[in-house]
Amino acid sequence: MSNEWPLWEVFIRTKGGLSHRHAGSVRAPDAELALRHARDTYTRRLEGVSLWVVPSAQIVASDPHQAGPLFEPAESKIYRHPTFYHVPDNVKHI
């Protein structure tokens, strides 16, 4: 039985203005029940104000074996961080 229900990835928005973040996964026979299972499993302690569920099979993931070519070239590109600007003292909230 347990292998017949597809897996769904659960994303929770913890409060207004923040983005949805991955919380975990649930099994459910369809989208509507996946939302209910996500609500019952991951928002029992006021964790969220909005839920997304996505069929796990629809997630396209990067290949761990490609992690070197994909991510390591960014290590030596410190100029991509906006840290070389002089911020005037009077500019607040940056």
Partner: peptide, 12 residues
């Protein structure tokens, strides 16, 4: 319950 998710739903 038949599934852990349903177990939680019923307990809730």
């Amino acid at each position: 319950a038949p599934m852990i998710e349903v177990d939680l739903s019923i307990s809730n």
